[in-house]
Amino acid sequence: MSDNTEVGVIGLGKFGFSLASALTDLGHEVVGVDFNPENVRKAQDVLAQVYQADATDEKALKQIGFADLDKVIVSTGDSMEASILVVLNLQALGVEKIWVKAISEEHERVLYKLGVPFVVFPEAFVAFQLAHRLATPGIHEYFGLGNDVVTREIIVDAWVGKDLRELNLTNTYHVQVIAFRHAGEAEFHFVPQADRKMKEGDVLVLLGKTQDVMQIDKF
Rank of each mutant, 00 (worst) to 15 (best):
E6I: 09
E6G: 00
V7H: 05
V9M: 02
I10D: 02
G11Q: 10
G11H: 09
L12R: 04
K14D: 14
F15M: 11
F15D: 12
F15W: 10
F17P: 09
F17Q: 13
S18M: 15
S21C: 09
A22R: 14
L23H: 07
D25G: 12
H28T: 07
V31N: 03
V31S: 02
G32W: 03
G32T: 04
G32I: 02
V33A: 12
V33T: 07
D34L: 02
P37D: 05
V40A: 08
V40Q: 08
R41F: 03
K42F: 10
A43T: 01
Q44L: 05
D45Y: 05
L47S: 10
V50T: 11
V50K: 04
T56E: 09
E58P: 00
A60G: 00
K62H: 00
K62M: 05
L69V: 00
D70V: 03
G77T: 06
D78N: 14
A82M: 04
S83Y: 06
V86Q: 02
N89V: 04
L93Y: 06
K97D: 12
I98P: 11
K101G: 06
I103S: 15
S104D: 12
S104Q: 13
E105P: 10
E105N: 14
R109H: 13
V110M: 13
V110I: 15
V110Q: 12
L111Y: 03
Y112E: 11
Y112I: 03
G115W: 01
P117V: 06
V120Q: 15
F121Y: 15
F121N: 15
E123H: 15
A124G: 15
V126E: 15
Q129P: 05
L130F: 15
L130K: 14
L130D: 14
R133Y: 10
R133S: 13
A135S: 14
H140G: 05
G144H: 06
G146P: 11
N147H: 14
V149Q: 13
V156T: 07
V160A: 07
D163A: 01
L169K: 01
L169F: 01
N171C: 04
N171S: 10
T172R: 05
Y173T: 00
H174V: 03
H174E: 12
Q176K: 09
Q176I: 07
I178E: 00
F180Q: 07
E185V: 00
E187F: 01
F188T: 09
F188K: 11
F188A: 11
H189W: 05
F190C: 02
D195N: 08
R196C: 00
K197D: 03
K199S: 10
G201L: 02
D212Y: 03
V213P: 06
Q215T: 14
I216D: 04
I216N: 03
